[in-house]
């Protein structure tokens, strides 16, 4: 199957510091790829390279190629089109201080003129896909900030879905949530896999094992090992991967 994103010889610099070193991997479509590794290993930086959120930080520089739909995202692609196609869910739920409805409608409204009726449809569909519809259908006009943390995070996922992305980046999406909310998000990720490539950064080894098809282990800005999750977890090739997974460091 054709990969969703192809990364070739990626180097990433933050000022003088080389934060990512010579990364070359294919991210498969319709699969969940987990990025694991100790804090500061570069996994979140790598995630933010993929939708160019690092561009917002002064003094960052990139070498190598990232191909998405056969286009180099740092050269030949409109930044806003890229971010529309590559959605992102953040560590801390960050709904806008607006109504539930307007949070979801925000994305579609950015990109084109859209009729109220069509928008209603998109909002409902997105909320259903994020399994939030039943909980919020009666409070569409109340502030999103009144939702619980878990609901807020699912709202943020629905907000991404509303612009019909092809890839979903998730930066430790459950680290600020309680176990019940976490389980719901994990369930959701499994459901969404059919439609998108999902890349999820996680600190939680069990979570990576539960929900991902592929796993990349990062250490000091490099990918030590990348492969099917089952392989990585049961038969790691590299000693360092084994040490990390068995909890000997990190």
């Amino acid at each position: 199957m054709k990969p969703a994103i192809t990364i070739k010889n990626l180097n990433f610099y933050y000022r003088q510091v080389m934060a990512l070193k010579n990364i070359s991997i294919d991210i498969p479509a319709n699969r969940v790829t987990a990025l694991i590794g100790p804090s500061g290993c570069g996994k979140s930086t790598f995630l933010r390279v993929l939708n160019r959120m690092n561009d917002l930080i002064e003094g960052t520089r990139i070498e190598g190629k990232i191909l998405f739909n056969d286009t180099n995202i740092y050269k030949d692609m409109d930044l806003m089109k890229l971010r529309k196609k590559v959605g992102m869910v953040f560590q801390k739920p960050n709904p806008f201080p607006m109504s539930v409805y307007n949070n979801i409608a925000y994305g579609p409204r950015l990109h084109r003129k859209i009729s109220d009726k069509e928008l209603d449809g998109i909002v409902e569909k997105s909320l259903k896909s994020a399994s939030l519809w039943d909980e919020v259908r009666d409070r569409m006009e109340s502030s999103a900030l009144g939702l619980s943390g878990g609901q807020q995070q699912r709202l943020c996922i629905a907000r991404c879905l509303a612009v019909q992305p092809e890839v979903l980046l998730m930066d430790e999406p459950t680290s600020a949530l309680d176990p019940v909310s976490t389980a719901k998000i994990e369930e959701l990720v499994k459901d969404l896999r059919d439609k998108f490539a999902i890349i999820i950064v996680t600190h939680n080894m069990q979570q990576a094992g539960r929900i991902s098809d592929y796993t990349a282990f990062f250490l000091n800005g490099e990918i030590v090992e990348y492969g099917a999750t089952r392989e990585i977890f049961h038969r790691p090739v590299d000693k360092r991967t084994e040490d990390y997974i068995t909890g000997r460091f990190g």
């Binding site: 917002l56 806003m80 971010r83 994305g107």
Partner: peptide, 17 residues
């Protein structure tokens, strides 16, 4: 909060939007 800005940009909004 910077969170709002990131969320909006990540959805493909321009800086002005």
């Amino acid at each position: 909060p910077g969170d709002y800005r990131s969320a909006s940009l990540a959805l493909g909004a321009s800086h002005w939007q």
